[in-house]
Amino acid sequence: MEYIILIGVIAVIILLFAGKYNRLVTLRNRVKNAWSQIDVRLQQRNDLIPNLVNTVKGYAKHESETLERVIQARNQLMAAQSEENVKEAAKAENQLQSTLKSLFALRESYPDLKANTNFLDLQEKLKGMEDKLASVRQYYSDSVTRYNTEIEKFPANLIASMFGFKAMELFEVENEEVRKAPKVKFD
């Protein structure tokens, strides 16, 4: 009878251990899936940027510095896109956001560009892509938070350390300008 109880206790411990391990694997895979969604959306947006730049080039020939900065920021983001390099990807993303703002500011100086349907269409597609990117970034951050929380909780932390589950980085905005609340003036 004692052996049956001992075997039962060992079986329960093994089942709990296996359940926690499987939970960690599931959460880690969700984070990888979330990152791949970010990667897909970034690639889609990166594919739009050359079309946008070429459209602007036709109207703003002497704005080559701005256009070059946009292309350079896009290339840096493409090079940094990897799950292992979340901080670099976030930094490159912030740089691209800044350069795109300066690109869109050019439209104020060029009325013909402002009225160009191709430019307006590309701008609208880019805006839609930014909305989708924000959504998948949120999903990624939620997945990373769940995963990191789980590997810190007892007894999962013991299993995590035994099998090499490491905390993952959030995709964080480093640009302080993005975090500031807009100033609203009523005249």
Rank of each mutant, 00 (worst) to 15 (best):
A73S: 08
V144R: 02
L42T: 02
S143G: 04
Q44R: 08
I71D: 03
L133H: 06
L6G: 02
L103V: 12
E150N: 12
P50L: 07
A60I: 09
A34W: 00
R69E: 11
S64A: 11
Q97N: 13
K180N: 12
D131Y: 03
E169D: 15
L6P: 00
L16H: 08
Q37I: 01
T99A: 10
I13C: 09
Q81E: 06
M162T: 00
M1N: 01
Q123C: 05
S64C: 02
Q43P: 01
E169V: 00
Y59M: 08
Q97I: 12
A115R: 06
S143R: 03
N116K: 11
E63F: 06
S141A: 11
I7Y: 01
N118S: 13
I38T: 08
S109E: 12
K91A: 11
S161D: 12
Q138D: 14
S102R: 13
G128T: 10
E124Q: 15
G128E: 15
Y147L: 10
N118Q: 14
N75T: 12
L96W: 04
R74L: 00
K61P: 02
T26A: 14
R69S: 07
N33K: 09
Y59Q: 08
S82P: 06
N118K: 15
I71Y: 01
L48Y: 01
L113I: 07
L133K: 15
T55K: 12
N157I: 02
D142S: 08
K166E: 06
L113A: 11
L100C: 06
V144Q: 04
E83L: 06
E177N: 11
M1Q: 01
E83S: 13
S36C: 07
M1E: 05
E65W: 02
K32F: 07
S135T: 10
M129R: 13
A11H: 03
D112G: 12
E88M: 01
R41A: 09
E152V: 04
E2Y: 03
S36Q: 12
I159W: 05
F171Y: 12
R179C: 01
Y139K: 07
Q72L: 09
E84T: 10
N116M: 13
E177Y: 07
E88P: 00
E88K: 05
Q138C: 04
P111N: 15
T26H: 14
V173L: 05
V86T: 10
Q97P: 02
Q43Y: 03
L48S: 00
D112K: 15
K125S: 09
D47A: 10
L103G: 07
L52V: 10
T117C: 05
E65S: 13
R137S: 07
L48W: 01
V144H: 02
T149M: 08
N46H: 09
Q97C: 03
L100W: 04
T66G: 06
F165G: 02
A73G: 03
A160S: 10
Q72K: 13
N175H: 07
A90T: 05
L126H: 05
M78W: 01
Q76N: 15
Y140P: 00
L15D: 00
I71T: 15
Q43F: 01
V86K: 04
D121T: 14
A89G: 03
Q72I: 09
A115W: 06
Q44N: 13
E130L: 11
A105K: 11
A79I: 11
K166Q: 09
N157Y: 05
T145S: 09
S102D: 12
A73R: 00
S36F: 01
F154I: 11
L24P: 07
